[in-house]
């Protein structure tokens, strides 16, 4: 598979009154074509800054960024990608239809049938004649998605596409994004809405204070938790044998519930249970919650940051 996005040590430094800050710090991103990629991070992590660099709207301080094989910002690449900015605004006097006509004209597209079908796709056909100023937030976001589909892009950048939407608008947008996957489009979504990401994305990167803390397949990142083992008819002296392992156990009425760290020899534990004539009821790997992974990651980075900063001050 080819790389849709690849960055090497991508860095953006802003000068502030009290010195310089690497808002994006040596970022190595890799997104494959056809993937829905979640770019996760708390507010101010550097997500929007990264996307703007990938689009050539702002320029990196150092490092490289390639989008669909070309230097970021390449005007020919812009024909086959699209961008939905965070909290976008449109020319308010325009109607939904005029918005599509305007953005279409920037691609040299003037195809009323296409505009109509896009409006239908985002469920705005009935409001096509209303000015944008009369649109709700959810409708504005949907017209934004419609304009981002004008050129039938291979790669879409969606910056917080569900930010500030009510639950219904939220689900509408999410369903539209899921359709993109079926069409084989690559989608790069920045978000801090974890439930969306968990449902939509194939791979994620977690960014905090400009640094990527984790990157990988969502399945793999969330795996590596703990394994729950439940067994009946367990002899009363059995729990004591486990005291050297990373295990939490509860024993009650000959039923033993174990929560074993995945790194431990789970099979060994199962063997010894069997040889003790216990009856194994279930063995269930427990996925980490994305929320826990996120909090854990963000906390780790913050701690690291603090130590390097105090180190630099000495």
């Amino acid at each position: 598979m080819a790389a849709a996005i690849e960055t090497k040590s991508l860095t953006k430094t802003y000068k502030l009154r009290n010195g310089k800050v690497n808002v994006v710090d040596k970022l190595d991103l890799y997104v494959e074509e056809g993937e829905i990629f979640g770019f996760l991070g708390p507010n101010g992590a550097g997500k929007t800054t990264t996307i703007k660099m990938l689009l050539g709207i702002i320029y990196p301080t150092s490092g490289e960024a390639k989008v669909l094989g070309k230097e970021a910002g390449d005007i020919n690449t812009h024909r086959i990608i699209s961008y939905l900015p965070e909290k976008p605004y449109y020319y308010e006097y325009m109607t939904g239809m005029e918005i599509l006509k305007f953005y279409g004209s920037l691609f040299g597209i003037n195809d009323p049938a296409k505009f109509q079908s896009l409006l239908e796709r985002v469920n705005l056909a009935g409001d096509a004649g209303k000015p944008i100023s009369a649109y709700s937030k959810g409708m504005q976001q949907r017209i934004g998605l419609a304009q981002s589909l004008l050129n039938d892009p291979r790669l879409l950048f969606l910056d917080e596409p569900t930010g500030g939407l009510d639950p219904i608008a939220h689900i509408e947008i999410r369903d539209l994004i899921l359709q993109f996957r079926e069409e084989g489009k690559t989608v790069f979504i920045s978000s801090h809405a974890l439930s969306d990401v968990e449902r939509i994305c194939d791979r994620v990167a977690i960014i905090n204070k400009g640094v990527i803390a984790r990157q990988g397949k969502l399945d793999e990142l969330l795996r590596g938790g703990r394994i729950e083992v439940i067994a009946d008819q367990v002899p009363a002296d059995f729990p004591a044998k486990l005291k050297d392992l990373k295990v939490t156990s509860s024993y009650n009425n000959a039923r033993l519930i174990l929560d074993i760290d995945e790194e431990e020899d789970v099979n060994g534990v199962l063997d010894s249970l069997r040889s003790a004539k216990a009856h194994i009821v279930s063995v269930i790997p427990r996925r980490k919650k994305l929320e826990d992974l996120f909090l854990e990651t963000v906390k780790n980075v913050s701690e690291k940051r603090t130590t390097t900063m105090s180190g630099a001050a000495q």
Partner: peptide, 14 residues
């Protein structure tokens, strides 16, 4: 300020 420029510059517009 209104970020209208971002959508425009993300299209094939120099």
């Amino acid at each position: 300020e209104r970020r209208t420029i971002y959508t425009i510059l993300s299209k094939p517009v120099q």
